[in-house]
Amino acid sequence: MKINILVKIVVIIALIASLLGLVLAFLPFGLIALIPTLFGFAIALIVFFIYRKYKLPKIVLFISSIAILLIAGKEIFIKDEVVADKAFIEKDEASKNEAIKELNELEESGLLDEIDSLDVVE
């Protein structure tokens, strides 16, 4: 009786792990999603071979397998890329123009000439 409860607890832990793996597989966690997934898969596999009467390990194995396929598919077919961000490019240009304007003002006040007279390392 006690063993049955223990096995159920272990399988529920495996189920939670594989569900977490599945959620992480949908999110952009990459290979990190494998950690809970493989944990759940391994436990479910062991329980499945020892106690074939339980159905839950099969469900855990199924969920884990889907997660593994999803993770592998995303790793193989989806390439990491940065989206060209027009607003960011404009921000970059605006910042540069603003700095050049400020540098010109510093030059007019003679501050840039003072920097030139500094040693390379003080």
Binding site: A87, L103, L106, I115, V120
Partner: peptide, 29 residues
């Protein structure tokens, strides 16, 4: 810049600039 897969959850667009003198490498702005 965060990768597009992260943009939905946590978008990062950071810009750091330093304007330095050519000879002394001293930052001006």
């Amino acid at each position: 810049s965060s990768y597009s897969k992260w943009d939905t959850y946590f978008k990062i667009r950071d810009l750091y600039e330093s304007y330095i003198t050519i000879d002394t490498y001293k930052p001006v702005i």
